[in-house]
């Protein structure tokens, strides 16, 4: 297991290098001169040329890349043009919100997705199944921003139960109770993904329950609940865990929308604002962080997959 993990970590290296090249080139593909953008309309050509030299943008592309990469390797993602502060500290500021939001969201996805999926599979065709399948279909189809706005309208504006926007740090006044600011956003983010997990759990459990070994389990005289959980769900879990990698990718893109709708000071909103401000170092930094996270989540998924399915060889 350990040697497999190390080997997988090593294979991440080329992927990371490829990703860093793409992230770097991506900024250079955007039309416009960063120095000109930075200095504004009133700049003279001499000033622009001076700044270009100062920023190292007159060097060949490969030199710029190796320079940037060596800084990244040291943990320096550059200076934000807008904030005039290191990109790492700006990302760190947004990370608290995003990490808490992601954790709460995944909590909801598991809490709602798995039990409801199991319930509707074991009661296939019943009203419970039809109701949950209908709701799952609805939530899987609704756009995130629409759901977010309606939740604000009903629970924040109408009933006044929850705050509608913003998120004071849990280290500030209010402490842990500040998490209530994240309740509506995390539910918004969880809804479509939990709906997908419900449908996936249901479908794979129905698939598995037709397999021969489930008949063997029933022939042992086991209680149907035990057959459903220990034999059917345990096998269906393999498929569900594999899907979690995709769920993470979906979460990243939906988080951008959700953080904007709820005005949360997270990384998603930071990206959108940085794009509007042409704050290239921040965009580069955030994308790089997301790529690294995504690779690690997929590594975790693969390891969990290997642990759940003995047929997957770890050699």
């Amino acid at each position: 297991m350990l040697s497999y993990t190390l080997k997988r970590l090593l294979t991440l290296l080329p992927t990371l290098i490829a990703a860093s090249i793409l992230v770097f080139l991506f900024v250079h593909l955007i039309p416009g001169d960063p120095a000109a953008v930075l200095l504004g309309d009133t700049a003279t050509p001499q000033e622009i040329a001076a700044l270009t030299r100062e920023m190292g943008l007159d060097k060949p592309l490969w030199q710029q890349y190796t320079l940037w990469l060596s800084e990244v390797a040291k943990g320096n993602l550059g200076q934000s043009i807008f904030f005039k502060a290191p990109v790492t500290s700006i990302i760190a500021d947004g990370a608290q919100t995003s990490i808490l939001l992601a954790t709460m969201t995944i909590f909801w996805i598991i809490i709602f997705g798995i039990p409801i999926g199991v319930l509707s599979a074991t009661r296939q065709g019943s009203w419970v199944d039809q109701l949950t399948s209908g709701l799952a279909m609805f939530f899987a189809s609704v756009p995130t921003f629409w759901l977010g706005l309606y939740l604000i309208l009903i629970f924040a504006v109408g009933l006044g139960w929850f705050p509608s926007s913003g998120f004071p740090s849990i280290f500030d006044e209010g402490g842990i109770s500040n998490l209530r600011y994240l309740l509506l956003p995390s539910l918004t983010l969880a809804a479509p993904n939990a709906a997908l997990i419900i449908r996936l759990v249901r479908a794979s459990m129905l698939d598995i329950s037709r397999e021969d070994h489930v008949r063997t389990a029933r022939a042992k005289g086991l209680h149907p609940t035990k057959v459903a959980i220990k034999h059917v769900f345990r096998n269906a879990l393999i498929t569900v865990v594999a899907a979690f990698g995709f769920t993470f990718a979906a979460l990243v893109s939906e988080a951008v929308v959700t953080e904007t709708v709820f005005s949360l000071p997270g990384i998603g909103r930071l990206v959108v604002q940085s794009i509007l401000r042409r704050d290239y170092p921040v965009i580069q930094g955030v994308i790089l962080v997301i790529v690294v996270l995504y690779l690690f989540i997929n590594l975790l998924v693969d390891l969990a997959y290997a642990m759940l399915d003995p047929r997957v060889s770890l050699k």
């Binding site: 397999e211 070994h213 022939a219 005289g221 393999i238 399915d309």
Partner: peptide, 26 residues
Amino acid sequence: PAERRAIMGDQMAMIFQEPMTSLNPV
């Protein structure tokens, strides 16, 4: 159903055609 299950696997047992798929893979 409960009385039936008490007999299944205990006093009455069954072997199936496909040994390849009749055991739980995990």
